[in-house]
C-alpha cells in the first residue's frame, strides 16, 4: 500500500497491492478501503450508468447505496481480490434490480410515467451525458448493448465495462463458464453487426 507523504493515497496498479489493501480494509483500515474505492469506483460508475441507461433509475443513488452496503459489510468478506470484485459487482447488480422492481411497483401503483419522465429521467440523462462527455459514439454503443437480449447485455457489460473474467462472470450470474462464453460471443457479434449497420 502506498501512502503519499502529504497524506493522500496513490491508487495501486497491481493486483498484489490491492490484495494487501483488501486485507487491511477487512481488518478495519479506512485508508486501505479508500484506496480500493478509488480503484474500483470508476468502472463501477460506468457499469451502473450503462445498466441504468434508458431507464428512469438514478444510477448515482444506486451506486451510493451499493458502496454503503460494501463499506458496512466488508469486514464479513472472506476471499481474494478477484472474489471481492465479483462481490462488489453483484451488490451493484442487485441494487439495480431492486431499483427496477421498485420503479415497476411505483408505476403499477399509479404514479404516472409522465411525472417520472419529467423529473427523474431528464436528470439521469443529463448526468449520463455529463459522464460520457457527450461522446455520441459511446452513447450509441451503450444504446445498442441495451437492445441486446437481457442475458447477453449483462454479460457484455460485465465483461467489457466491469472488466470481469469469464470465471468471475459465471460466479456472479450463477451460470457455467461455457454459457458465459457463448453469451459473450453472441452479444459482441450482434453488437458488431449493429454498429457496422449504424455506421454504414
Amino acid at each position: 500500500m502506498k501512502y503519499q507523504p502529504d497524506g493522500g493515497i496513490s491508487i495501486p496498479d497491481g493486483e498484489n497491492e490491492l490484495e494487501v489493501a483488501l486485507e487491511s480494509a477487512i481488518a478495519g483500515d479506512e485508508r486501505a478501503f479508500e484506496m480500493i474505492y478509488q480503484s474500483l469506483n470508476p468502472r463501477l460508475v460506468r457499469y451502473c450508468a450503462s445498466q441504468c441507461y434508458g431507464s428512469s433509475l438514478d444510477y448515482e443513488e444506486l451506486l451510493a447505496e451499493s458502496w454503503i452496503s460494501i463499506a458496512r459489510d466488508i469486514s464479513k468478506f472472506t476471499g481474494d481480490f478477484a472474489g471481492f470484485r465479483s462481490w462488489v459487482y453483484s451488490i451493484a447488480r442487485n441494487r439495480i434490480r431492486d431499483g427496477v422492481r421498485r420503479r415497476t411497483r411505483q408505476v403499477k401503483s399509479g404514479i404516472s410515467l409522465d411525472e417520472l419522465h419529467d423529473s427523474e429521467v431528464t436528470a439521469t440523462a443529463q448526468r449520463m451525458e455529463s459522464l460520457i462527455e457527450s461522446d455520441e459514439a459511446v452513447t450509441a454503443i451503450v444504446a445498442e448493448i441495451k437492445k441486446l437480449p437481457n442475458a447477453q447485455s449483462e454479460v457484455v457489460l460485465l465483461r467489457v465495462v466491469a472488466d470481469l473474467s469469464i470465471e468471475e462472470c459465471a460466479k456472479l450470474l450463477g451460470k457455467n463458464e461455457n454459457s458465459i462464453r457463448v453469451l459473450s460471443h453472441r452479444g459482441l457479434a450482434a453488437l458488431r453487426e449493429a454498429l457496422k449497420g449504424a455506421g454504414s
Partner: peptide
C-alpha cells in the same frame, strides 16, 4: 469498440463521500 474501451477505462478518482466513510466506521 474503442470509444467504449476508453469510456470504461477512464479513471477519475473522486474523494470517498462522507456517508460511505461513516458506513465503513459503522461496519
Amino acid at each position: 469498440f474503442a470509444p467504449l474501451r476508453h469510456f470504461a477505462s477512464q479513471g477519475d478518482s473522486p474523494e470517498m463521500p462522507l456517508n460511505i466513510r461513516e458506513a465503513f466506521r459503522d461496519g
